[in-house]
Every structure is written in C-alpha cells, then in structure tokens.
C-alpha cells in the first residue's frame, strides 16, 4: 500500500514537475511568474481532446506530440502579443506578471464562451489498464506519465547543456543584455524559451486530461506546480523537478492518511498551500533558489 502511494505520488509529481519546469524556465530568464502557463496547459489538453475525440480519432502518441507543438506555438504567440513590448521597454516584472494573469483569465473565459463549461473526458488510453506486481496494482497511465515526463525533462536538460541556444538561455538567466551583445537575437531566444515551456505544458495538460477531465478551469491545477517551483526555488530547473516530485509525494501520502476516523484526503489542498506558506517563512528562496545578487 505504501509503495503504491509512493508510485502514485511520483507520477502526479512528475506531471507537476513538467509544469513547474515551464514556470522556472521563464522565471529564470525574464524574472516574472508567467501565470498564463496554466491556460496554455489547458489549451494543450483541449487540442488533444479535439484531435482524439471531437473531430478526429488521432492515436494517443500523435495527439500528444501535436498538443505539445500546439501549446508551444500558443505560448510563443502569448509572449509575442502580451509580453514582448513590455520586455523591450524594460517594464518592471510586476507588470509582466499582471499581464500574464490577464491572459490566463481571458483565455479561460474564451473557452467558457466558445466550447462551454462542460467536462470532457479524453479516451482512457491505458488509464484503466493496470499492472500487477505482487500485491501492487499500478495504473499503466501513471507509469507512462512518469516515464515520459522524466524522458522529456532529460531531453530538455541535454538541450540546455549541449546546444548553443541552450547555453545562451542559461547565460541569459544571468545577464540578458550581455547575451545580446554577443550576437544573440533576444526575440528569437525568448521565443524558443516560450515554445519549450509551452510544449512541456501541453504534455502536462494531456496527462492531466487523461487522468482527470478536460474543462476550462483545469489550468488552476498549475497553482500546485507553481508551488512546486517555489519550493524548489524559482528559476532553478533541478529545484522545479525536486519541488514538483516532493509535492506530488506529500499529497499522495496525505490523501491516504487519516487521524483517528477522519481521512485527511479532503485536507490535501490545505496541506499543499500550507507548506508553501510555512516554507517561505523559513526558506524564502526555496531549496535550490539563487540568492539575488547585484549584477556588477
């Protein structure tokens, strides 16, 4: 039972990590929390729904890839339309964050107005399939989500370490101006950054859609991923991964715990937001957070 809980926790945690990495990537370079990320994740799930259920019967893997590409393109457009002008004018990051909140609420309401508030299910794929290992019963979807998330994050890591664009993204996290003086077109670099963050979000959205449902406000689940990113230290990729996994594990453990006869599962969200508040009191920069230094 305990091991099963751990596996469930790791699976949901890896999806949190996917989303948290998107927050952290953008934060590391542009220094603001892109709260529109949740809406992009939602749109990723809707793309999969449109492809697999509504219009066509595209196979799951293809739908997953197309959702990633679509969500990436939407994140790119989101930056071009809403943030790029603010960025070029060097607006304080607070304004970028407020703009992001505006984008999130607008997109969510566009979904309400056009597709409606109805909840849609994605095909169960192998959500119902289970693997039996001794006494353990594990959903194949949980395994798939974990493996695929881990694989994707590993690829992201390789991009950031091995490619020129990746190195430039890491350098821009420290000094964007200097990166441009070395010949990097910042508009292109930020575009790549948002495409990556968006496609990771699209993948997370599809997994959430399969596990739960597809509905306009599903993006708010990213608040949890955001907590994960903050726990790990905003702007740090290892931080986002550790934070996301940790939050998933703790939630899974709290859900199955009980005090006396009272199950704690209804207190799950009280718990996750509570540890955020408490952690920030003791460790305001998270586990892997950078201390803000003067850039001389």
């Amino acid at each position: 039972m305990f091991i099963q809980t751990i596996i469930t926790g790791l699976s949901i945690g890896s999806v949190y990590a996917l989303m948290a990495v998107g927050y952290s990537l953008v934060f590391s370079v542009l220094n603001f929390s892109n709260f529109a990320h949740g809406a992009i994740i939602t749109l990723g799930a809707y793309i999969a729904w449109a492809l697999m259920v509504h219009y066509l019967q595209v196979p799951f893997l293809l739908a997953l890839l197309l959702s990633m590409g679509g969500a990436g393109a939407l994140a790119f457009l989101n930056e071009r339309i809403a943030y790029s002008t603010l960025r070029r004018r060097r607006a304080p990051s607070l304004y970028l964050m407020i703009s992001a909140m505006g984008v999130a609420i607008s997109l969510q309401n566009i979904l309400y107005a056009t597709i409606g508030a109805k909840l849609y299910a994605l095909p169960p794929v192998f959500a119902m399939d289970v693997v039996h290992m001794g006494e353990l019963t594990i959903s194949k979807m949980d395994i798939f989500a974990f493996v695929f998330s881990a694989f994707t994050i590993a690829i992201l890591h390789l991009i950031l370490v091995r490619t020129k664009v990746g190195v430039a993204i890491r350098a821009a996290a420290h000094d964007m101006e200097m990166v441009s003086v070395l010949g990097v077109n910042l508009d292109v670099l930020v575009g790549v950054l948002f495409f990556i963050a968006g496609s990771l979000g699209g993948m997370a959205g599809v997994f959430m859609g399969v596990k739960y449902m597809v509905y306009p406000s599903m993006g708010w689940i990213t608040n949890k991923a955001y907590i994960g990113a903050v726990i790990g230290g905003l702007g740090s990729l290892p931080g986002a991964i550790v934070g996301g996994l940790l939050l998933g594990l703790l939630e899974a453990l709290v859900s199955v715990s009980s005090i006396g006869d009272t199950s704690l599962s209804t207190y799950r969200d009280v718990f996750s937001f509570g540890i955020l508040v408490i952690l920030l009191i003791f460790k305001p920069t998270g586990f892997f957070g950078r201390h803000v230094e003067d850039k001389l």
Binding site: K164, V167, A168, R170, A171, H174, D175, V184
Partner: peptide
C-alpha cells in the same frame, strides 16, 4: 557568465 564554464563562455562568443 559566472555559472557557466570557461568553455561555455567562449562558445557563446
């Protein structure tokens, strides 16, 4: 870029 290696700094050049 202090958190990048010497090689990475050169590559960016």
């Amino acid at each position: 870029f202090p958190h990048l290696t010497v090689r990475e700094n050169l590559i960016l050049g």
